[in-house]
Design a protein around this nucleic acid. Structure first.
Length: 297
DNA sequence: AACACGTGGAT
DNA sequence: TATCCAAGTGT
């Protein structure tokens, strides 16, 4: 240990990470100084399990059409689902609409700035609440997504992780590494996230381009393989596939679709009935007395 | 805690 | 072609 310094340099050295972020961080719309909390919140919903490239155009359309939470809340939830396009997980559109409604009703139309208030919004979990608090309001909160979790696992813990939602221990560990100054801490989280997205990727990490390679415990251990993943559900013939087809049909038809027509989209009659009922139960579809189905009003 | 929940690009 | 997986949340 150096005689002059009190603590050893951490693996996730803020100096190295912030320099990396300044040089290589992507110029994304929700990172612009002009992007307000609403633009950040919308981006975080869209980015849940969805790549940046596909979010970009839809985010731009949403902000142009609904510049404030109240603008979105003033329209039927079905319009949010329709404008969601093919981003996937359309229930996110429903929850974002519900969040906008709660913001308009309970927060005077302003996106709240504290983690507890954000957590109370529909569709906002442990990750999104801290991402908005940090990136939109400059709060000193540990922001741990799948990228940050992977960097923590590899660089700090020396193991390769399977992809799972971050846990409290991950947030605690990152919190211990945050710079003291809040705005700098927020940039630090964004920098770790960016490193995971651009360099320390899941499948093909580019250690030769990593600013942390000299300290990385995983690299120094010879990049040991991670544990096996849980088996994934087959896609062909799944409920998810059929639900996707049904919602796509509803998005395309402003006048609604006959229930019988939706049921034809599946190979299995019982499965189709079950999926349609589930969509209605989830609030992604509504059925009128004639049996006509539409996106929610 | 384990699952369900969409989509499309990369390998 | 099959599998992985990308800024998670709710149950």
């Amino acid at each position: 240990m150096p005689a002059a310094a009190g603590a050893p340099t951490p693996v996730l050295d803020p100096e190295l990470l912030l320099d990396f972020f300044a040089r290589h961080g992507r110029d994304l719309p929700w990172r612009h100084p002009s992007a307000g909390p609403w633009a950040v919140l919308v981006s975080e919903f869209m980015l849940q399990q969805t790549p940046v490239r596909r979010v970009l155009p839809v985010h731009q359309e949403w902000l142009a059409r609904w510049p404030t939470p109240a603008d979105l809340a003033a329209e039927p939830a079905g319009e949010a689902v329709r404008a969601w396009g093919r981003l996937g997980y359309p229930r996110r559109a429903l929850r974002l609409h519900a969040a906008a409604t709660a913001i308009a009703r309970d927060h005077g139309g302003r996106v709240p700035s504290t983690v507890p208030e954000l957590l109370a919004l529909p569709g906002v979990g442990e990750y999104t609440a801290r991402a908005v608090a940090a990136f939109a309001f400059g709060a000193r909160e540990p922001v741990v997504d799948t990228n940050v979790r992977r960097v923590l696992d590899r660089a700090v813990r020396g193991v390769d992780s399977i992809r799972e939602p971050a846990v409290a221990a991950d947030r605690r560990d990152l919190a211990a590494l945050l710079p003291v100054e809040p705005a700098r801490a927020a940039r630090f989280s964004a920098a770790v996230m960016e490193l995971g997205a651009l360099v320390c990727t899941a499948a093909a990490p580019a250690c030769d381009r990593c600013p942390l390679v000299a300290r990385c415990r995983w690299y120094r251990a010879g990049r040991p393989a991670g544990t096996a993943r849980r088996p994934v559900q087959t896609w062909h013939g799944s409920d998810r596939q059929l639900r996707g087809r049904m919602v796509a049909a509803l998005r395309a038809e402003r006048a609604g679709v006959a229930a019988a027509e939706l049921l034809l989209l599946g190979d299995d009659r019982d499965q189709a009935r079950r999926c349609l009922a589930a969509l209605i139960a989830d609030g992604l579809a509504e059925q009128d007395p004639d049996g006509r189905v539409d996106l929610p009003r």
